[in-house]
């Protein structure tokens, strides 16, 4: 609740005028909140519906899934689909471990390598910088499908296939999308801050560590959340590089419910999809504290 909506109740000796002023302000504030709700609640419901549909399928018996017209409320709800889906056919707990290893590593790796590169591109002056930056962007522009085979051959020559290495090592060497994102954020930080720090004897790296990074917490949180989700849901690369079934990840496990000719265990797939999405939501929900702290810091230092 925003503090501006509350008039100071306990105080004595308030003039009639100030009471009216406070009341008008409170009414205006209430109107604003209601307006915002009117705009965001329907959208939220719309966005939640598919998720409910997923949940509904997850709780159905196979024979109820395709009943036409569709029924939204499963009767009786099959809670065991969650347990069966997670344990019966695919060792999801093992895959969760694998996914956590890869995801954790890649969040750290991306933060490290992308912060450095973005810092260079955003705030250091050098020859050929523009061309190099276009090259960074350029690597996002070639469709994955045509580099798939050469890339696989490369990792095969390094004897990295069927290990986590092709999925984890590149994270430490930058990801164009994140470099670009961080660069944009780093460029919004006022230049005077650097200059002042330099006068105080701060080195290039000291500026990055003491000024740029603390002021960029919302951006860093964004990168962390995106890296988390990207790796969490990443499906094709792990599938291509990992051969042993005990090295698989959650996303591959999910895909294992799918067979030929639409022959799919929909109920289990939806149950596990639901379970897999929950941690992402928790991470995002918690990461928001970082976003908020970000403003406070900016406010203090800026």
């Amino acid at each position: 609740m925003s503090s501006t909506t509350a008039a100071p109740q306990g105080q004595r000796g308030i003039t009639l005028r100030s009471v009216r002023w406070y009341r008008r302000k409170a009414v205006r504030e209430l109107a604003r909140v209601v307006c915002v709700y009117i705009l965001i609640v329907p959208g939220a419901i719309l966005l939640l519906l598919p998720f409910l549909w997923m949940l509904s399928t997850a709780l159905k018996l196979p024979k109820q899934i395709f009943v036409f017209p569709p029924q939204l409320i499963p009767n009786p709800p099959q809670w065991r689909n969650f347990v069966d889906g997670w344990t019966k056919y695919v060792p999801f707990t093992l895959y969760l471990r694998n996914t956590l290893i890869i995801t954790g590593n890649n969040i750290l790796g991306n933060l490290f390598s992308c912060c450095l590169a973005a810092y260079g591109f955003a705030r250091l002056r050098a020859r050929g910088k523009d061309v190099l930056f276009l090259l960074v962007l350029g690597t996002m522009m070639l469709p994955f499908w045509v580099t798939l085979i050469p890339q696989y051959v490369l990792f095969s020559r390094l004897r990295w296939t069927n290990t986590f290495l092709p999925l984890t090592v590149p994270a430490w060497f930058g990801w164009p999308f994140f470099i670009f994102l961080l660069r944009q954020f780093f460029m919004t930080i006022p230049r005077d801050l650097d200059a002042a720090a330099r006068i105080d004897g701060c080195s290039t790296w000291g500026i990055l560590w003491r000024i740029i990074l603390p002021l960029s917490k919302p951006a860093l949180a964004t990168v962390a959340v995106f890296a988390f989700i990207g790796n969490w849901n990443n499906f094709l690369s792990p599938l291509i590089y990992l051969r042993d079934q005990d090295k698989y990840t959650l996303a591959i496990g999910l895909q294992r419910f799918q067979g030929v000719h639409g022959n799919m265990q929909y109920h289990h797939m939806m149950a596990v999809s639901t379970l897999i999405v929950l941690p992402i939501l928790v991470v995002y929900f918690l990461a928001q504290r970082l976003f908020v702290r970000g403003i406070v810091m900016t406010g203090m230092k800026g």
Partner: peptide
Amino acid sequence: IKRINSGWSEHNQIVPTWAAAGELP
């Protein structure tokens, strides 16, 4: 016996990839 299990359409993408690297099962 070791097993690899991909989805049906993924299998058809991966086989040429394995072939190019000389890593076919």
